[in-house]
């Protein structure tokens, strides 16, 4: 089985993340780039399956600028992926979801796959739509936001907890799934993996190699303004001298935050 895992580089959420207010784009140099944790969990699903079915190839696929991504992606290879494909092209600066989905779809077809696994939503864009868009573009079956996953030769099944209900479902392969952080943590790369990663195949593709010409007439989502919300300031702070609970209640009452008991 050939599994493509979609990887994404994001600014580390432990640091401040900033937008360029001129372009509305992420200020990549302002924060530490890391592999998005949810994409590492997606990779863990693929690697766990390969342990059961040695006849499985795990390919990492990412789209993003040249900069730090190749180094970031090495971590996925060190964890155990077989090879990596990185799509980069200056024309992709500021690409919206539609263009990104088009590019990933073309690259995935170039690689070939039985199953595509993605995280359900990244920590930076947080859209959570790309796996669904790919499902549609491929014309295959998909399952979004799975909190358990079972993969066999011909099908993938799993469970999904939505805001209102939960269900178990299965799809026939080929297909696309996205996984939530209910799935197990990713393994840490060990020393052997880190050494081996240096020799694993790493392919870089641009739009011409994928046969993509950006259509300027296509509908795109565009940023029309970006502004920074004023920073929040600290207010009152007290040390509890035995009456802090009463003081908070007084503060709540003054701000009309204690509602009458509802019937």
């Amino acid at each position: 089985m050939k599994i493509i895992v979609l990887m994404k580089e994001v600014p580390d959420t432990y640091g401040e993340r900033t937008l360029d207010l001129e372009t509305g784009l992420l200020n990549r140099s302002a924060s530490e780039p890391v592999l998005d944790e949810i994409t590492e969990r997606a990779l863990e699903v693929a690697l766990s399956h390969r342990e059961k079915d040695a006849n499985t190839e795990v390919v990492l696929l990412t789209v993003g600028p040249a900069g730090t991504l190749p180094a970031t992606l090495r971590k996925g290879l060190a964890m155990g992926a077989d090879r990596a494909v990185h799509v980069q092209d200056p024309a992709l600066l500021g690409a919206d979801l539609s263009l990104t989905a088009q590019v990933i779809a073309a690259a995935a077809k170039h690689i070939g796959f039985d199953l595509v696994i993605a995280g359900n939503a990244s920590t930076d864009g947080g859209g959570g739509a790309l796996p669904s868009m790919l499902t549609e573009l491929f014309g295959v079956a998909g399952l979004a936001s799975l909190s358990t996953v079972a993969i066999d030769e011909l099908t993938v099944s799993g469970s999904c907890n939505t805001e209102f209900d939960s269900y178990e479902a299965s799809i026939d392969l080929p297909g696309v799934i996205s996984v939530t952080e209910a799935l197990p943590d990713a393994r840490f790369p060990n020393f052997k993996g880190i050494m081996a990663a240096k020799k694993k195949p790493f392919e870089t593709l641009d739009l011409a190699q994928l046969g993509i010409v950006i259509d300027q007439e296509t509908a795109r989502s565009i940023v029309i303004s970006a502004a920074q919300r004023p920073a929040r300031n600290a207010g009152i702070r007290i040390e509890d001298a035995g009456d802090a609970g009463d003081q908070i209640a007084e503060f709540l009452a003054q701000n009309q935050l204690i509602k009458g008991r509802s019937a």
Partner: peptide, 23 residues
């Protein structure tokens, strides 16, 4: 922007070639 709403919106946008604005 629920799990099902997002899934449907994303797939409709991909199918119709529409721009998508999430969350």
């Amino acid at each position: 922007n629920s799990i099902r709403g997002r899934d449907a919106a994303a797939r409709f946008a991909a199918r119709s070639g529409s721009a998508l604005a999430l969350d």
